[in-house]
Write a protein that binds this DNA or RNA. Structure first.
Length: 288
DNA sequence: GACCAGGTGCCAG
DNA sequence: CTGGCACATGGT
């Protein structure tokens, strides 16, 4: 156990950020969360405006949690309608973090038609079986593409991936074979990067957009999933719409940080809907 | 059982 | 371009 350092943070809520459906491998542990940033094991915690992390990892942690994002300014660019305002009030301190690209891509390939807690379970299972154990805490790294590429389909299926296993395996193979260089995409315009991502098996527009938003820091990109579709149709467009209309509206209406706005809408709707569904049962990991 | 989950790919019209 | 359907798995 190394020493702990801390800094003062404003407009940051660690728990909400980690539980908002953008990242899936952090596990509550005592008064904080155990996880990893790339292959560095981490324990992070927050008490009020004090943010705790392992001594010596300040730069890494600040970059990962995007503590340099000017959240107040970002939120000011959001439209001022009732739905958006309610989401903003519900989500103080929610940040879109900077994830390592491969683990973000791979995890979202496994996200198709899965609930957040299943995505989490799959991510942890893949890490535990095929990743590298990083410390005494038992936290594991996400396995590199070359590692997954060598597996038999059967091995991946043991992680309860279902029909997504083939896609993950094939994508890992292509990246391991350098058919696609995820680093190069950083320098490309969003449209071009999206086109290349969508050529990977199991990656369509929604997942490509998640990766662009959560790993490539394209904060204007809006992944339209079932929740966002529902919100757009009920609160904004009043009725069912084609995919093209949903895309057009998202791009036109939410401003330069549309992806950020979308994340607030997503988390608010999902969290409140889970709270309603609770009614005494013991499900749900969504912070309020 | 039916229905749903941060979808994708493929096929017919 | 659009709608329809299969695809695994786990939870209400």
């Amino acid at each position: 156990m190394g020493d702990i350092a801390s800094i003062r943070v404003t407009d940051f809520d660690l728990e909400r950020t980690l539980n908002s459906g953008q990242v899936f491998h952090w596990v509550r542990s005592g008064n904080g969360f155990a996880g990893a940033i790339g292959d560095i094991p981490m324990f992070v915690a927050q008490e009020g405006d004090r943010f705790f992390f392992p001594k010596g990892s300040r730069r890494l942690v600040c970059a990962y949690f995007a503590l340099d994002h000017e959240l107040t300014e970002i939120i000011q660019t959001f439209p001022k309608d009732d739905t958006m305002q309610a989401a903003v009030l519900f989500c103080p301190g929610l940040r879109i973090i900077r994830q390592p690209i491969w683990e973000c891509l791979a995890t979202f390939i496994t996200s198709a038609l899965k609930q957040v807690r299943h995505i989490s379970a799959i991510s942890l299972s893949i890490r535990k079986r095929f990743g590298i154990r990083l410390g005494e805490s038992g936290v594991c790294s996400y396995p590199e593409p070359v590692v997954l590429a060598k597996l038999e389909l059967k091995q991946l299926l043991e992680c309860q991936l279902g029909f997504r296993a083939k896609n993950l395996l094939e994508t890992a193979k292509r990246i391991a074979a350098s058919a696609v260089d995820l680093e190069v995409l950083k320098k490309l315009p969003t449209e071009e990067a999206r086109t290349i991502l969508c050529e990977l098996p199991g990656v369509g527009e929604k997942i490509a957009n998640c990766v662009l938003l959560f790993a490539y820091e394209r904060l204007d990109v809006v992944p339209i999933d079932v929740w966002i579709k529902r919100i757009l149709e009920t609160d904004y467009l009043k009725g069912s719409r084609s995919q093209a209309e949903l895309k057009q509206f998202s791009a036109d209406y939410f401003g330069p940080y549309a992806g950020y706005a979308q994340q607030y809408l997503f988390h608010h709707r999902r969290a409140t809907s889970m709270l309603r569904g609770l009614k005494g049962s013991s499900a749900g990991h969504v912070s309020t």
